[in-house]
Design a protein around this nucleic acid. Structure first.
Lengths: 224, 224
DNA sequence: GCTGAATTTAGCGCATACGTAAAAAAATGC
DNA sequence: GCATTTTTTTACGTATGCGCTAAATTCAGC
């Protein structure tokens, strides 16, 4: 059976393609790009490029500047602090709400799986695999919280720090504490202890924030 | 001296004009509007209308639907719960951070002024004036928190519930407790007690949320 | 040489046009 | 009459073109 190739608009293609180019670094942070240049690169006219750029602008990935084209935004340590502060609050809320819902073990299976994959990643020393599992844990936690606004906002902010994570991943200490934290949050949700889930996750995120910010400062990284 | 009329683009005009039309109810919640119709109404072509619509779409005010035009989004009680949950977390964070900054009395003057205006609004029974002062208090609090992401997100969500507020304002009990809460938050920020500021504001917001949700349920308001 | 004015150029903001696909209307068959 | 097919219409998605202004360049005067 053939994959039904749904007719996706050029604007949508431009959005996902530009995102990919930004995350892969092919469009470097801080660099400028003319609309016409991007249009040619993606094989379409300026119109869908502009619409895509406006969407990505409101997601905080880039900036439209008159006569200067599109500027890919970089992320400063201050930005990181802001973003981690918001993530701390909203993910803690999600953990609290998830615990209140009384999910069954099956419903939490994907969360448990993410934790296992993180453990395995650590054991094998595969940090990228660990990071991907960590992402899965966080986004699944937020999904379980059930608040669609939180889901959207967290996804947006996670995108903004994605590039930075790639850089810091190999500078940070081996994240054994992180895995223990996640296990604690999972167990709190499992037994329906909303306050514990909230507080555990909150502490976890705050520590992660402080660790990252210290790293950036020690390595004098001002812009990512 | 003449106001220097800065050259504002049609897209920007379309954004603010469409926002105005939505908030005033001239574009009713749930209604559909053709791009060409809106373009004619605002005296411009479809291009800036589409760009504006994309921006407002990402702000959660409306939706672009192929061949159906622009749909103005309505807000359900579930949406209200989601939004108030997020506002609770992010405003509490702002209160905490504001208290940590050790603002002087002058720097908090605008916040104090908003509280005074709320008191005066209550005394004179002018609920709209009270509501405007309440808005000022909340947005100033968030501004004092100093996190630009929080500022943007809270402003966006406040927009989404704006229409609902107009409806509930005259159904709710006289908000005397609300004024007392704000005074408490102000004093906590004043004396630099971050935890108190956070907890007081958190409780305040949670009570406001429960009150509004009860109101909507009692009056069987499913869509605003 | 250097400053400032004049000229050129570049690139966006927007209007416009058109192909296309979905929806509506009309026509056809039973 | 009702269901199905065909035709028509409608409104979006996108390409294209151009005016206008900010930026870059050249030129003039000292």
């Amino acid at each position: 059976m053939q994959q039904d190739e749904k007719a996706v608009s050029n604007t949508e293609r431009a959005i996902s393609e530009l995102r990919r180019l930004v995350f892969s670094g092919e469009l470097a942070a801080g660099s400028d790009h003319l609309e016409s240049e991007l249009a040619e690169r993606l094989g379409m006219s300026r119109t869908p490029i502009r619409e895509a750029a406006r969407t990505l602008e409101s997601q905080g990935l880039l900036e439209l500047r008159a006569r200067k084209g599109v500027r890919i935004l970089s992320v400063s340590p201050d930005d990181m602090r802001e973003i981690y502060d918001v993530l701390t609050e909203l993910e803690s809320l999600a953990a609290e709400r998830a615990a209140e819902k009384g999910y069954s073990e099956e419903q939490l299976a994907y969360l448990a799986e993410a934790i296992e994959d993180m453990d395995r990643g650590l054991e094998l020393g595969e940090l990228e695999a660990w990071a991907r599992a960590d992402d899965r844990f966080h986004s699944e936690l937020v999904r379980l919280g059930g608040n669609s606004r939180v889901i959207a906002i967290v996804a947006m902010l996670a995108d903004q720090v994605r590039r930075a994570r790639t850089v810091t991943l190999f500078m940070r200490p081996v994240p054994v504490q992180s895995n223990r934290d996640h296990q604690g949050v999972y167990e709190a949700i499992m037994r329906g202890d909303a306050q514990a889930a909230r507080n555990l996750h909150r502490t976890h995120r705050q520590q992660a924030r402080d660790m990252i910010l210290n790293l950036l400062e020690r390595h004098r990284l001002r812009q990512l």
